[in-house]
Amino acid sequence: MGLLARSGIEALRDAWGALNLSPEFEWLRAPETGAVMVRGRAGGSGKPFNLGEMTVTRCALRLLDDGVIGHAYVQGRDRSHAERAALADALLQTRHAEVVQRIVIAPLAEQLAAARAEQQDKAAATRVDFFTLVRGEDQP
């Protein structure tokens, strides 16, 4: 679910298109957009405080043919993104799990890992070594 929540809207749409499955379902909770209060900790490790909110879209659905329930809580306001994420969550609990894993989940995981590696490489290229200079006061 975390991977589906973090994936880009286009990335999930493309992967979903490649899956070519359109299972029938009913809404248990139609997609709705709301906010989640994000917390931090004082000093990074101390007591929690409220940092600010983020937009989140959630939904829940039930597959009609086998009654499996899928949930989604995804960042942002895109309802279709939440719908696809919930469908993928449901299908991962069915006989389609393997194909969903291979065609949707694995490519998304690869994309996120590649994006992360690229950011790490860029950051690594800006690693700097500072030298402190001798100021000369101690010299005669």
């Binding site: 209060m37 931090g40 990074g44 409220n50 909110e53």
Partner: peptide, 22 residues
Amino acid sequence: RTTLPRFGVSAPIDTSAMLCLR
């Protein structure tokens, strides 16, 4: 933001595990 229902609160974010850009 005043129009958004509050779904809940997150766990405190773990800044020690940050993917640092800077």
